[in-house]
Design a protein around this nucleic acid. Structure first.
Length: 202
DNA sequence: GACCAGATGTACT
DNA sequence: GTACATCTGGTCT
């Protein structure tokens, strides 16, 4: 089912807000032992690098963990948090501009059996609902951080059905109260009324 | 809906 | 050494 036609580098080298909005409707594909697991992106958040108090690269922070964010767009940045969760981001912009888009939720499309096994008993719409759930469903952890998303081999994002502007909602990001005024920036993009969006109020 | 424990990597002193 | 994290699932109301 997956076309294997990964989004090209140019897609990711654009302004991060645009990449975030345009990722809605796109499909993340994980290919493992010839089997595909795929989800359609329904919720994302933009993180705007050194000027964004909510970003891991705020004020130019550069450590081994965030190194993938400093490279060119089109790579994946995975971090581990709360002692048990992984979250994945698509890196944007050119090399030296450390911005990214957090994948918050997706609608399961393919490989349902695999996702159900990984996530345990729960409704299908909850399989990839929430950033850590996305990683579990796709079998992604920080060993995958830094992978190139444009080669279309193990993990990539391909074009999906375009989400119309009227179907896109913008909202403040989740879980970043420490970010001061930036916590209110409307950098979260989601498909309106979609059953698979996460976004528990906080 | 509100509240909270969980378990450890990561950044910084 | 220490504080805290781009969260989830379970419990209680």
């Amino acid at each position: 089912m997956a076309s294997g036609k990964a989004l090209t580098r140019d897609f990711y080298l654009r302004p991060t807000r645009d990449v975030a909005r345009d990722l809605l409707g796109c499909v993340i594909v994980r290919r493992e032992r010839g089997r595909d697991v795929a989800i359609r992106i329904v919720e994302v958040e933009a993180y705007l690098g050194i000027e964004d108090p909510a970003a891991h690269t705020y004020r130019g922070r550069r450590t081994a963990r965030v190194e993938p964010m400093w490279g060119p767009g089109g790579h994946i940045y995975v971090y581990f948090t709360y002692g048990m969760h992984h979250c994945m981001n698509a890196v944007t912009r050119e090399q030296g501009t450390p911005e990214a888009v957090l994948i918050r939720a997706g609608e399961p499309l393919e490989g349902l059996t695999t996702m159900r096994r990984r996530r345990g008993p729960r409704a299908d719409r909850d399989l990839a609902r929430g950033p850590a759930c996305v990683c579990v469903a796709l079998g992604v952890d920080r060993r995958h951080s830094g992978l190139d998303l444009t080669t279309g081999r193990k993990l990539w994002i391909e074009e999906g059905e375009r989400v119309a502007d009227a179907q896109v909602s913008r909202a403040p990001r989740i879980g970043v109260p420490y970010a001061g005024a930036a916590a209110a920036w409307p950098l979260r993009f989601l498909v309106r009324d979609h059953p698979c969006v996460s976004g528990r109020p906080r």
